[in-house]
Each structure stands twice: as C-alpha cells, then as structure tokens.
C-alpha cells in the first residue's frame, strides 16, 4: 500500500451520511471514523439509527447523502454481496448460517474452493476447505470437535464463533458485528469477547453494535453514541465501568448533549 503505518488513512470513513425513510429521518448527517485495528462500539437506543448506519456500510441500504471512504478510496456498494467483495463483512445477529451444513461448508458458503470445473459444474475441493477451516479455527482459538460437525449440533456460542470466523476468513478490511452477544449464555459471552480480543490482536478492524454496554467496555477502544439519527458522543473508552455506563446512558437518553455539532449551512 502507498500509505505508511504512521500516517495511514482510517480503514473506514463515513461522511455526512443521511438517510430518510419517507418522512422519517433515520440518519441526519452522521460521520464515522474507524482507524486501522480499532474496535469501535456503536450504541444507541432503539431507532437511534445504528442499524441503518451499519446497513449502509454493509451495502444493504444506499445513503441519500454522504460518502463512504474505504482505505482511502471512495466506494459505493450496490448490495451486501458487493460490500463483502470490497472487504466489508457483516456478522448478523441470527448468525446467518446454514444449520444443515457442516462448519467448513458454512465458512466457505458462497465462496467455495473448487478443484476443477467442467462448464457449469464446479467440483468442490473438500480437503482444501476443511484444512483451511481447521487452520482458521485454530488461529482464532475456537475449539470444536471437528470441522465436519453440522452447525445444528453446535451451541449458541460456538455458532457465533463460527459466524465470526467465517467473516474473518477472507481478509476482510472491516468486520461489523450486530449484537454478537445477544441470546448467549454468560460463559458463551465471555468466549465471544475473548474471540473479539483475539481478532483485534491479530490486526482486525471491528465495529460492534451492542445493547450490552459492558461488552463494549471490555473489548472496545472507542464508543460512538447515536441518538435520533445524530452522533451525540464519540470518545475513547476510559475510566471505570460504572462511570462509563453512566456516561453512555446519559448520551443515549439525551440527558447529556454536548457534542460539538457542525451546523450545516
């Protein structure tokens, strides 16, 4: 790459994103900056606009206004698949796995390794996919009996781990996780958080949407709060957890509102 490590542009920058649904202004000009190798926690009450913002970044919605800059280059996504091809991976809340297939099949779903092709018929390279999956899970310290286990036989935490592993399998530039710890047991939550830390240690850039503020506190570098389609807070995560939680909630419910708003002419 042309940029040096010290002066690298952020991996993702969203500028002045606006999105209306009919008369509803879901996003009223939101900026988001994600530097390389940072974990950003995105919080806000229901209908604050965080899901809309992430759907725009992952290609599900097109913004009415504003631009997205990925690794220094302006980009436009026509579909989630397009965004994925350009390096934005989304881990959906309900894991989006095919439960009837095994782990390796899910990791490579839609991107199967092919040993050879005869016209429209492409033959799967089972061994390569299984080997790669094994290596990937080992690298992320995810423990399963076998990569040939069907996903329906995994626990909730293991499924989430597979979903996250799958997002990291193809050199994603940014990984977005939508409520990665919702509907998990306490033990599973701590494993998923460990996994997120491991990903960061290995250099990933991550955005997490979560209602669980303590998760953001434990793994995040920075927190961004949205309220009524505006960014109301954006600061590094510091202090003790009670202080952090109070601050987050204050911004979420509008008790504090001191973010320097650049008035749009």
């Amino acid at each position: 790459m042309e940029s040096t490590t010290q002066n690298r542009p952020p991996i993702v920058e969203m500028r002045g994103i606006k999105k209306n649904f009919g008369a509803v202004q879901a996003l009223r000009g939101v900026d988001l900056v994600l530097p390389h190798n940072e974990v950003l926690g995105l919080v806000g009450d229901n209908a604050a606009g965080k899901s809309t913002l992430m759907k725009i970044l992952s290609g599900a919605y097109t913004p009415d206004e504003g631009e997205i800059i990925l690794d220094g280059q302006p980009v436009h996504f026509s579909s989630p698949l397009d965004a994925r091809r350009q390096g934005i991976e989304m881990v959906y809340q309900d894991y989006a796995l095919a439960n009837n297939l095994d782990i390796a099949a899910n990791v490579f779903l839609g991107r199967e390794a092919v040993s050879f092709s005869l016209g429209p018929i492409s033959v799967l390279d089972y061994h390569l996919m299984e080997q790669e999956t094994k290596r990937l899970l080992e690298r992320l310290k995810i423990r399963v009996d076998s990569v040939r286990q069907k996903v329906e036989r995994l626990s909730g935490g293991q499924r989430q781990a597979v979903a996250i592993a799958r997002a990291t399998a193809f050199d994603a530039k940014v990984i977005i996780m939508d409520e990665p710890t919702a509907a998990l047991s306490v033990a599973a939550i701590s494993k998923v958080l460990d996994l997120i830390r491991e990903l960061k240690a290995q250099g990933a850039s991550i955005i997490i949407i979560s209602h669980r503020l303590e998760d953001i506190y434990h793994v995040g570098d920075r927190m961004m709060v949205l309220r009524h389609g505006r960014k109301v807070h954006d600061a590094p995560i510091e202090g003790d957890i009670h202080e952090f939680r109070e601050r987050a909630v204050a911004y979420m419910v509008g008790a504090r509102n001191d973010f320097p708003v650049e008035e749009v002419a």
Binding site: P80, L81, R84, M90, Y92, Y95, A96, L97, A98, N99, N100, L101, A105, L109, G110, R111
Partner: peptide, 13 residues
C-alpha cells in the same frame, strides 16, 4: 444451503 437457510444463502451471494 438454500434449503437449510435461504436468507443466509442469499447473504452469502
């Protein structure tokens, strides 16, 4: 994959 989870399949391209 389509039989197991059509939404996941579609999201996977």
């Amino acid at each position: 994959a389509v039989g197991g989870n059509p939404e996941a399949a579609e999201l996977s391209g």
